[in-house]
Amino acid sequence: MTDTELFLIALAIIFGLPYAIWRLGHTDYWAPLVVVRIITGIVLGPGLLGAVFPACYHAVFEPRMVQALNGVAWWGVMLFVWIAGIELDLKEVWRQRRECGTTARWRWARRCCSAPWRRQACWPGAAAGSARAATTGSSCWAWAWPARSPPCRSWCC
């Protein structure tokens, strides 16, 4: 079997099987198509299908095919983000700037608290073990400090 035929068979399985389960199983009342696709992807993956029926899994999902399918998947993610950006209404974002700002601040806080050496100064004047840091109730400060953590060089980390 050629690579093109194998690639088309893999695409037909990936796109056709979840849709067939969704339509023929009448799961649209309790599970949307995207949920059925996620569950089917887990079942078709190496963790279940590859463990239970390794010969079937490796016959269709060879490493070359998985690499090609990953390329297609990345293009799909890029198109999804591009379409989301096109549909973004900046007037609506400005109207709901408080909620949007909360989301942006959460992302900033997660970035500050993502590594042990960044946990010591997520805001100006905060230091490890300081009273202000200890009373924030943040999970950033719940971890023990490594003995040799480099200091944070800027207040935003």
Rank of each mutant, 00 (worst) to 15 (best):
M1E: 09
M1W: 07
T2F: 01
D3L: 13
L6A: 07
L8D: 11
L8T: 08
I9C: 05
A10P: 00
L11C: 13
L11K: 06
L11G: 02
A12Y: 07
A12Q: 06
I13C: 13
I13T: 07
I13R: 07
I14W: 03
I14M: 09
I14A: 10
F15S: 11
L17Q: 09
Y19L: 15
Y19D: 10
Y19V: 14
I21W: 09
W22K: 05
R23V: 12
H26P: 05
D28Q: 15
D28C: 07
W30N: 14
P32W: 04
L33V: 05
L33N: 03
L33Y: 09
V34T: 15
V34G: 12
V35S: 03
V35A: 13
R37N: 10
I38E: 03
T40V: 14
T40R: 08
I42T: 05
V43K: 03
P46V: 08
P46K: 10
L48N: 12
A51N: 12
V52F: 12
V52D: 07
F53A: 15
A55L: 14
Y57R: 08
H58E: 15
A59R: 08
F61G: 00
F61A: 00
P63D: 14
V66L: 14
V66N: 04
A68N: 02
L69I: 03
L69T: 01
L69N: 00
N70C: 06
N70V: 02
N70L: 06
G71C: 01
V72Y: 04
A73C: 04
W74I: 11
G76T: 01
G76D: 00
G76S: 00
M78G: 09
L79V: 05
F80Q: 10
W82G: 12
W82I: 12
I83Y: 14
E87K: 15
D89C: 07
V93G: 03
V93E: 03
W94L: 10
R95C: 02
R95M: 03
Q96I: 01
R98A: 06
E99A: 08
G101V: 02
T102S: 06
T102F: 04
T102V: 08
T102A: 12
T102P: 00
T103R: 09
A104C: 01
A104F: 00
A104K: 00
R105D: 10
R105I: 06
R105G: 02
W106R: 12
R107G: 11
R107P: 00
W108S: 13
A109M: 05
R110C: 13
R110P: 02
P116C: 04
R118F: 04
R119E: 03
R119G: 01
R119M: 02
Q120G: 10
A121R: 14
C122A: 02
C122T: 02
A126H: 06
A127W: 07
A128I: 07
A128Q: 12
A128G: 07
A131C: 01
R132I: 09
A134R: 15
A134D: 05
A134N: 10
T136M: 11
T136E: 14
G137D: 08
S138V: 04
S139H: 13
W141C: 08
A142K: 13
W145S: 12
A147M: 05
R148F: 08
R148M: 06
S149K: 04
P150L: 13
P150H: 10
P150K: 12
R153A: 14
S154W: 10
